[in-house]
Design a protein around this nucleic acid. Structure first.
Lengths: 225, 225
DNA sequence: AACTAAATGTCGGCTAATTTACACTTCAGC
DNA sequence: GCTGAAGTGTAAATTAGCCGACATTTAGTT
C-alpha cells in the first residue's frame, strides 16, 4: 500500500526510529513523493510551501547561485540524507536548486509545519533533531575549514578520503568509489578551477595513487592519499 | 541575591524568555559564573563537563588549533551570545580555546545535561533552540561562502560592514566601531596574512574610506565600503 | 555510422597574495 | 624614564592557481 510504503521510507531514517506508526503517518498525510532522472533539476527554495526532503535513493547535489551567477556546490546529498529547510526557517534570499547526479533518484518529503508539530509532541525527537542539525553544522564547518587553510592538492586528497570513507567499497587498503561526479563537479566541491582539478587528478594517477575514469575511482592505497 | 542575578542573566536571552522563573532556576542550580580580563584564555573543550556558555559582557574570540599548530579564528562572540557545545554533542577531537578580547568579560554557564533535560520538558524551547542553532549555521555558511569566493579586499569590506552593523554606532552615513581587534585578528578572521590586512586597511585609509587606530575604527561613509 | 555536446587533457601568461625580512611605533610594567 | 614585547608599516621575491585558448576523447542521439 502506498501510505505504508512512505511509512517505511521515513521509518528507515535513524531520526524517526523512535516514532510510532501513527506518528509517522501524521507526517505522511500530505507527504509528497517524487522520482527523477539524471540531470533533472529540482527547485525547492522559495517557490513552494517549505518542506523537508528525504532522499531515498541516488545522489543529488545542492547548488547555490549568487547574484553574479556563480554556482557553488553547497552539498552532496546521499541516499538516506535529509535536506531542505533543516533549520525550520525559510529564507528566500538564497537561490538554490538540486540537480540529480545518479541515474535516478526517489525523494520523499513532508511539510515543515507538520514536522514542527511533531517535534512539539516529541521532545525526544526534538533533541535528536537538534543534535542532527548540529552534526550537520559541524561537518560543514570542518569542510569549510579545510577549504580555507589548505591548498588545492590537500583539499582534493581530503575530499577523496571523505568520499571513500562515506561510500567507498574497501578491499584491503584499496577503495573503489562509484564515480557519479564529473571533474568539474569535484573542482566545484573543493573550490578550485576545473583545470586545476584535472591536473591534480592526473598527477595522482601518474603517481599510481589512484585510477580515475568516469564510472569509478579506484584508490590503490588509501593510506597514501 | 546571587541566584536571582543569574536568573536575570539568563532571562535576558531571547531563547529563555518563554521560561518560567523556576525553570531557569533549574538550570542555575549548578550554574557557573566567571569573570576574566583581557588576554586571558579560557579552555572549554574536553577538559571539563560539557557546558553551554552565555557571554554577558565583553567580547571573546574562539580559536581552533589544528594538528600543525595553525590557529584559526572560529568565531567572535559578543555580549548576549551563547557559545560552547551548542550542538549538544561533545567532540573531543577539536582543540579550541576562548581568548578574552575586551577589557573584561563576564560569562555564565550551565551544564549541557541540565539544558537537555529542560529541552525535554519544553518542546517549544526545543524548537526555538533548533532554529537558533540553524540560524547560527546559516551565518557560518554565509561567512564561509564569502571567504571562499571573494578576494581579500572584498572580504575585508564585508567583514567591516558586518562589524559596523552589529556593533557600530551610526551617525548619518558614518559609523564608529570600538576596535578591540588587532590587525592580526582581523587578518585571521578574513583569512589572509597580517601584512595583506595591514596593506588593505591603509589603502582604505588613503582613500579616505575610514580612519583606523587601535581604539576605534571610524568609517566615513558606510555606503562606500 | 555520423554527429554533437559534454567531459577531459594540456599549456603559458597573469595576478593576487603569501612569505621573508626588517624598520618603526605604541604601550604596559618595572 | 627605560625596556621589551606586541602591534603596525613597507617592500621585494616567489608561487599557487586562475583564466583563456585550444585539442582530444567519450558518450548519447538520430
Amino acid at each position: 500500500m502506498y501510505e505504508d510504503l512512505k511509512y517505511w521510507y521515513l521509518r528507515d531514517h535513524k531520526l524517526f526510529r523512535v516514532l510510532s506508526y501513527s506518528q509517522i503517518k501524521q507526517l505522511c498525510i500530505i507527504t509528497g513523493f517524487k522520482t527523477a532522472t539524471k540531470g533533472e533539476i529540482i527547485y525547492f527554495s522559495s517557490s513552494d510551501v517549505p518542506r523537508i526532503f528525504l532522499l531515498k535513493k541516488g545522489n543529488i547535489k545542492i547548488v547555490a547561485v549568487d547574484e553574479d551567477g556563480n554556482e557553488t556546490i553547497k552539498d552532496i546529498i546521499q541516499k538516506g540524507d535529509l535536506f531542505g529547510e533543516l533549520t525550520l526557517e525559510t529564507d528566500d534570499k538564497v537561490e538554490e536548486y538540486a540537480k540529480v547526479l545518479s541515474d535516478d533518484v526517489s525523494i520523499c518529503s513532508f511539510l515543515m509545519s507538520d514536522f514542527e508539530d511533531l517535534l512539539l509532541k516529541n521532545p525526544t525527537l526534538a533533541i535528536s533533531y537538534t543534535k542532527f542539525v548540529g552534526l550537520k553544522m559541524k561537518r560543514i564547518k570542518n569542510s569549510y575549514a579545510n577549504l580555507i587553510s589548505k591548498d588545492a592538492k590537500t583539499r582534493l586528497s581530503q575530499f577523496l578520503k571523505d568520499w571513500a570513507e562515506n561510500e567507498g567499497v574497501r578491499e584491503g587498503n584499496s577503495v573503489r568509489i562509484e564515480n557519479y561526479l564529473t571533474q568539474n563537479d569535484i573542482a566545484q566541491i573543493i573550490c578550485t578551477s576545473r583545470q586545476t582539478a584535472t591536473q591534480l587528478l592526473n598527477e595522482l594517477e601518474d603517481n599510481q595513487v589512484l585510477i580515475y575514469n568516469r564510472k569509478e575511482i579506484l584508490i590503490q592505497d588509501i593510506t597514501q592519499l
